[in-house]
Simulated scan of single mutants.
Amino acid sequence: MHTPKFARPDQSFHVELKNRINDYFERTGKSTTGGIRLFSKAAFLIVSLSIIYIVLVFFTPSTPWAILLSALLGALTAAIGFNVMHDGGHGSFSKYGFVNKGAAITAEVLGASHFMWNIKHNVIHHAYTNIDGIDDDIDAKPFLRMAPTQKRYKMHKFQHYYFWIFYCILHLYWSLLSDYQKYFSGKVGETPLKKMNTKDHISFWGFKLLHYSLFIIIPIISVGFTSWIIGFLIFSVVAGFTLSIVFQLAHTVEDTEFPMPDSLTGKLDDEWAIHQLKTTANFSTRNRFISWFVGGLNFQIEHHLFPKISHIHYPQISKIIKQACEEYGVKYVEYRRMHQAVWSHISFLKQMGRA
């Protein structure tokens, strides 16, 4: 598929939104980055993960505690991905580039290449959200049918029952297979990777070695293979499912759309901002713990429209965006509670299995 082209209306809704958001930051005098609130949260999450890792690997707690701590390690891994790596990767963690780079690199220690993530997420997903054939986030073929334009297989009739299995193995798939597929094929889906220089290659392999040393080699030497494999699988399943469900609730629910460009012209009907609003959903935005834990990714609309603004500000700017959508008659998809979004995702999978 050729790169789609978004519509360019004379009166851009995106420009209107940017003007209102810029005005908010000028009036309040706030920085668009995370500041001390985000730095303190990042420090808490990283220190907590480090302590739990040390206890599990070097002090060998009893089995019930080891199981609990392994699950908590997985949850903290996801939380660091949401709060530290994600903001860092978008350049919204700090006003300093090297700090953002350091935050983004936490992905490497936890098992994912930040180089591949940048192409897959920042470049492709954020630009062409929910466009089948380009957005790699909705490509789970052949096991899951995540868009109405994808081929349907008989097994998809049951995907709303078995989807959780694939969500649970995301971390394993990511750290052991997905990055290598992209690296050796030179593509993310059908989109070519940016050419990697020598530094990128060394970084890719060096961080993979560091991750395997921290999470496979050292734990096996310290606690033995059996204890390691049980703890590692618990850790990986919790991390994988948590990461998967949060990102899927933002785009693959009943009320989001999956626009496709015209087959001849390659043009889409909407401008970019309208496209983002049609393909993205918020959930559980009044739950402070969920907002804290998922790094504001329950405010996915705000994130997609303004990815370079830290998630710390999403609750405030969401009011501005929602007001503008009401005034202009633009779709704004929001599920008030977490369980509503989960059920909508399951219903969506069920619909895709039967369509």
Rank of each mutant, 00 (worst) to 15 (best):
Q300C: 10
I320M: 06
Y314T: 09
E326A: 13
N282C: 04
E326S: 14
C325H: 04
G296S: 11
I321K: 02
F306W: 15
F289N: 01
L305P: 09
L305Y: 15
I320C: 05
F293P: 03
A324F: 03
E334A: 02
I312N: 09
R286N: 11
F306H: 15
I312V: 15
I317P: 02
N282V: 05
Q316A: 15
W292V: 05
H303D: 12
R337Q: 11
H339E: 09
Q300Y: 12
H311D: 11
F293K: 01
I309E: 13
K331G: 06
V330H: 06
F293L: 06
S291F: 07
H303C: 13
E302R: 11
E327F: 10
R337L: 11
Y332T: 07
Y328R: 15
F293G: 00
Q300M: 11
P307V: 14
R336E: 13
L305H: 14
Y335W: 05
Y314A: 09
H304F: 13
I301V: 15
F289H: 01
E334V: 05
S318T: 11
E327G: 12
G329E: 08
S318M: 10
M338F: 14
F293M: 04
Y335V: 03
T285P: 00
G295W: 02
S284L: 01
E334I: 04
N287F: 00
Y335H: 06
T285E: 02
S310E: 11
H311S: 12
Y332D: 02
G295H: 08
I321F: 01
A324Q: 06
K331F: 05
S284H: 01
G295A: 10
S310T: 14
H339F: 11
P315A: 09
I321T: 05
L305G: 14
R336H: 11
G296K: 03
I321N: 01
I301F: 08
P315G: 07
P315C: 09
Q316K: 14
H339G: 05
Y332R: 07
F289T: 05
K319V: 11
I309N: 12
H303V: 15
M338T: 13
I317C: 04
S291D: 09
